[in-house]
Nucleic acid binder design. Structure first.
Lengths: 238, 238
DNA sequence: ACCTGAACACCGTTCAAGT
DNA sequence: ACCTGAACACCGTTCAAGT
C-alpha cells in the first residue's frame, strides 16, 4: 500500500531551492512561523524531511531565504522618485508585505546583517545620500529609519501571532487590548488609559506613516553642522 | 538511590511564582531564549517540570513575567526631570537592560499590549504630554519613540542570539558582518559598502541616542498646528 | 548527485497519582 | 493546596541506505 500511494503522489519535478522556498512561504502565510515545519513542508513537496537538507542548510536559512524572496520582490516594484517620496514608498511597501505575510517582520529581525536587511539599508541609504545629509550623519538617519520600520513590522507580526494563538481576528484582538487598557488604574496609567479608545479602531498604516514623517522632519536638524554631541553618549557602556 | 538523592537536594522553601521568575532570568541570561527550558528550570528549582505549571500558565507567560520584572525594576530607577531628559533616560535604561539581558528585546516585542509594553508607553506618554504635544498627535510621538526603542533592542538581541549560535563574541560577530558588507558589489550596494567599515568598531549606544534625538528633533513639527495630513494615508489598507 | 525515512535528542504540556 | 514524574505529541536534524 505504501508503495502504490507513494508512486502516485510523487512529484514530477525535482526538488529545488526555489520550490522549497515557495512552499515555505505558503506554509508561513497559513500558520505563521510555527506553521513552517520540516514535516509539513516535506509532505507538501511529496518527499521526506531529509531531502530538504540537501538544498538548504537549516530552518533559519530557510526562513531568511523565504523572507529575502519577498523583500527583493517588493523592492523591485518601487520606482525611485524624490528621496522623501521614495523613502515613504519603501517604508509603506515593507509595511504592506508584512500585512500580507505577517511573519516577515519577525523573520527579518532575526537575521541581522543578512541579505533582507541589507537590501533595505541600501535602498534607504541611497535616498539619504541624495538628501545631502552629511556623510558623518548618514548612518544615524538610515539606522533610525530602519530600526523604526522593522520595529513596527515586528510589532504587527507579534500582534498577528498573538491573535492567532487566541483564535481571534485582528479586530477582536485590538478590542481586547483596548478594553484591558481602559481598565487600568487611572492615577497610575493616565496616558495609556487616554489612548485606549484610540486603539480600538485606529489606522496602523496612517500611524506608521506619521512616524516616518516625524523622523524625516528631524533630519534637517542633522544638516547645518553637527550638533554638539552629548558627552555621556561618547563611548559604549560595555 | 533516587530516593536518597532526591531528599538531599530537595529545596527547603516552597516554590513560588517569584522564585520561578528569578530562576528563569538566570537561565535566560546564560543561554538566551533557548536556554529557558522547563526541564532546566525544574532541575534548578529541584522539582519536576509539572510543578511549575501550578504557578505559571505556560512558557509565554513565564517569559513575559521575567521581562516585566526587569522592566519594572528599571523604570523605577529613573528619576523624572525635564521631559526630554527623562525620555532619553528611559530609552537609555531600556537599551542597557537589553545589553545586560539580551533576551529582553525579543521577549518584550512578543507580547504586544501586555504589561511590559504598557509600562514603557505610560512612562514615555507622560513626558510627551508634558511637552505639550497636541492631544491628537501624542500617540504618533509615543508610538514612534517606542517602536524605535523596541526595534533597536530587538536588533541587538538578535545580534546576541546569532553571535551565540555561531560561538562568537559580539566583536567578532560585528567584524564578520563588516567584512561581508565590504565585499558586496560596488555598483549595486554603494551605501552599505560605505558604512561597512563603520560597523566594525561603532558605538551602538551613541547611535541609539542619536536616533532618539533625531525623533525628538522632529516633534516640534507636530506642534504649531496639525500639518496637512496626506490623503493617501487616510484609511487602512486591509 | 539526489532522495528516503527511520531514528535521535530534544521540546512544551498534561495528568494520574501522591502528600 | 501543592507537588511528582512518566507519558504524549510534537519538534529540527542526522545518516545509513537506496536510486
Amino acid at each position: 500500500m505504501t508503495k502504490r500511494q507513494r508512486s502516485i503522489q510523487r512529484r514530477e519535478e525535482a526538488l529545488s531551492r526555489d520550490s522549497i522556498i515557495e512552499a515555505s512561504i505558503a506554509l508561513l502565510d497559513r500558520g505563521g512561523e510555527d506553521g513552517l515545519t520540516f514535516r509539513a513542508l516535506s509532505e507538501q513537496l511529496a518527499t521526506g524531511p531529509g531531502a530538504i537538507y540537501w538544498h538548504i542548510a537549516n530552518k533559519s536559512d530557510l526562513l531568511t531565504a523565504a523572507c529575502d524572496a519577498l523583500i527583493l520582490r517588493t523592492m523591485n516594484q518601487i520606482a525611485t522618485t524624490t528621496p522623501e517620496k521614495t523613502i515613504r514608498a519603501v517604508a509603506l511597501a515593507l509595511f504592506d508585505v508584512n500585512e500580507a505575510h505577517p511573519w516577515v517582520g519577525s523573520a527579518i529581525t532575526s537575521t541581522p546583517g543578512a541579505s533582507p536587511v541589507v537590501h533595505i539599508l541600501e535602498r534607504i541609504g541611497q535616498q539619504i545620500r541624495a538628501l545631502k545629509v552629511p556623510a558623518g550623519h548618514q548612518w544615524a538617519a538610515v539606522d533610525t529609519l530602519v530600526a523604526f520600520i522593522l520595529g513596527v513590522c515586528r510589532q504587527n507580526a507579534a500582534n498577528c501571532d498573538l491573535a492567532r494563538a487566541r483564535n481571534l481576528d485582528r479586530a477582536h484582538f485590538l478590542e481586547a487590548v483596548s478594553t484591558a487598557w481602559s481598565q487600568l488604574d487611572e492615577t497610575e496609567y493616565p496616558f495609556t488609559r487616554s489612548v485606549a479608545g484610540r486603539m480600538r479602531n485606529h489606522d496602523d498604516r496612517a500611524d506608521f506613516l506619521a512616524g516616518i514623517d516625524l523622523i524625516l522632519a528631524g533630519i534637517p536638524s542633522l544638516k547645518p553642522r553637527s550638533r554638539p554631541q552629548l558627552k555621556h553618549s561618547a563611548s559604549s557602556v560595555r
